[in-house]
């Protein structure tokens, strides 16, 4: 029986969510196509992870090796290409994460098997593979077909599918590591944790999030005043940190923090999924953006299609009026 592989992603002792999200989709595909779902787990001393994962798939292919202790695309590529050549799965799913982005493209090129990255959906028709992905910062969806092949590789966007719940009692199959030596050209040195201190935006009840639409650093006091009026703090999307206008502890999104305030006001944020993933669970989301098609409006409760510089001063005044009225 043909297999569908899910590459388990784990870091610093924890299986990452994307693994369980891919399992949801993998299970659905396996059932539809009558294939067998197998989780591929690489690491050192990861039997506990193997046990956990065996509750989610029929098979866990476990390869343990001290050379696989930390993620290293060179070693991972060697092991996976060995495994893919040997077992010829129709499909291998890898997370579109810092880990998968470092691994999947060169793995696909080395085996010359078609790869589509950052997919939000996929389906198997006969033995052809169709994927759905996004372009232009989420403003357009694309349906694409992969070149017909015996084996495909897909990286899956984070938080696209719900996490799979444990429902199986799968088998753990230990496979000897094909690695004979340490990676020759790439070496993992260490993790660097974000520096402590600064403002903890995850603890704030009100966040005013700013994006590209803020245009210039000189406009920061204006939005800071609004945040102050609301008793909240400023947060931001990636471009603001890249420009050095706010420190990176204020960044909301996949490479920053996940927040869940009572109120999130998004100003000039288009709503790329990287940002949205970090704030979509806020209790109330109000978004101001000039572009009526900005993806932020599909997560916001209230939307305002207008220049933020027209709205912010009026809003700040209204808030102070209300507060004065109360006092």
């Amino acid at each position: 029986m043909k297999e569908i592989f899910i590459l388990a992603e784990h870091r610093r002792g924890e299986i990452r969510d994307i693994t369980f999200e891919m399992l949801t989709k993998g299970k659905e595909l396996a059932e539809k196509t009558n294939m067998e779902l197998a989780v591929v787990l690489l690491g050192k001393d990861v039997k506990e992870h193997a046990k956990t994962l065996s509750q989610h798939a029929k098979k866990v292919l476990l390869i343990e090796d001290e050379k696989l202790e930390n993620f290293n695309s060179e070693s991972y590529q060697k092991v996976l290409s060995h495994l893919i050549k040997e077992r010829k799965p129709l499909l291998t799913l890898i997370g579109h994460t810092s880990f998968g982005m470092d691994l999947a493209p060169s793995l696909a090129a080395s085996l010359n098997i078609p790869l589509a990255t950052d997919c939000i959906d996929l389906e198997i028709e006969d033995s052809a593979l169709m994927v759905t992905r996004q372009m232009y910062g989420g403003k357009v969806n694309v349906k694409a077909r992969l070149r017909q092949a015996e084996s495909y590789l897909v990286t899956v966007r984070q938080a696209t599918f719900p996490a799979e719940k444990a429902s199986m009692n799968g088998e753990i199959i230990e496979i000897p590591s094909p690695l004979s030596e340490e990676a020759a050209n790439k070496r993992f040195i260490e993790y660097v944790l974000p520096p402590p201190g600064g403002v903890d935006i995850t603890a704030a009840e009100v966040l005013v999030g700013i994006g590209r639409g803020i245009k210039d650093e000189s406009n920061l006091p204006l939005v800071e005043d609004l945040a102050k009026a609301l008793g909240g703090v400023l947060a931001c999307s990636r471009p603001i940190v890249d420009k050095g206008w706010l420190p990176n502890d204020r960044q909301v999104g996949t490479s920053g923090k996940t927040v869940k305030p009572k109120l999130y006001i998004a100003l000039g944020i288009s709503g790329a999924f990287q940002h949205v993933l970090g704030m979509k669970n806020s209790d109330l989301i109000i978004a101001v953006n000039k572009d009526p098609n900005a993806p932020i409006f599909s997560v916001a409760d209230y939307g305002i299609v207008e220049d933020l510089f027209k709205i912010v001063p009026s809003l700040k005044d209204k808030i102070y009026e209300l507060k004065a009225g109360k006092a």
Partner: peptide, 28 residues
């Protein structure tokens, strides 16, 4: 190429914000 684009489409809206309109003062 590995990938052949079949079609582009506007992402389906699962949830749409309620839009507020008016002058900036009214919106505020």
């Amino acid at each position: 190429s590995w990938i052949k684009i079949e079609k582009l489409y506007v992402p389906p809206v699962e949830k749409q914000a309620e839009f507020l309109d008016g002058t900036p003062e009214e919106i505020a």
